[in-house]
């Protein structure tokens, strides 16, 4: 009896599953804002650059705390930093498996940790440049700039990954990071 079994009537079988809580989403987009502002807009010698950098550090710090105490999809346990899982995921992808992951997919999880670590590295080296001890020391500045270049590469890969996964799985991931829920097309496996 199709009328009875249809759980989301008028939705052509797609279902919305809440995955990203508001704090995760706010941190995500705020972090993007700090990267854009500091990468393109602020004077790198100025106070504003410094403060925006501290905010970025703070955002990652808060996210790390939330990854311990937050709801399930936001927690470390939902997306462990496990390269083996990522390799398995790649293999499954090549075999045509298009299972939808409710949290980050294993490959995306690695990118998440990579971006957090890179932002932390940029923030710490940036802070070091403001201290008397490390001021004017070349390797710190080089590390700061290299880390930023790496961040740009990472962000590009991140965006490409999101586009690829959205296209493959039919779940609009950008929309999920805005509204908080993934709209899973009918008949997709969920993990």
């Amino acid at each position: 009896m199709s009328i009875l079994s249809d759980q989301h009537s008028g939705r052509s079988g797609a279902r919305d599953i809440p995955v990203w809580d508001p704090l995760v989403r706010l941190i995500h987009w705020s972090l993007l804002a700090t990267i854009v502002v500091n990468g393109a807009l602020t004077d790198v010698e100025g106070d504003l650059h410094e403060w925006v950098g501290y905010v970025a550090l703070g955002l990652v710090a808060i996210r790390l705390v939330w990854a311990v105490v937050g709801p399930r999809p936001a927690r470390f346990t939902a997306f462990p930093p496990n390269p083996m899982r990522a390799i398995r995921h790649l293999r499954a992808m090549r075999a045509g498996d298009d299972t939808v992951h409710l949290s980050h997919n294993p490959l995306g999880a690695l990118m998440v940790y990579n971006i957090w670590a890179t932002v932390l590295a940029i923030g710490v080296t940036g802070y070091m440049m403001t201290t008397l001890r490390f001021f004017g020391i070349d390797w710190v500045e080089t590390a700061h700039e290299l880390a930023f270049d790496w961040l740009m590469i990472s962000v590009a890969l991140h965006v490409a990954g999101v586009a690829l996964d959205s296209w493959r799985s039919g779940v609009n991931l950008v929309r999920a990071m805005v509204s908080g829920s993934k709209r899973i097309p009918h008949g997709k496996n969920v993990e």
């Binding site: 809580d21 508001p22 704090l23 989403r25 706010l26 941190i27 705020s30 501290y54 905010v55 550090l57 703070g58 955002l59 710090a61 808060i62 705390v65």
Partner: peptide
């Protein structure tokens, strides 16, 4: 969530 974010940044 917004207040948490603001207040956590202030705390830091």
């Amino acid at each position: 969530a917004a207040i948490i974010l603001l207040q956590a940044l202030c705390a830091l």
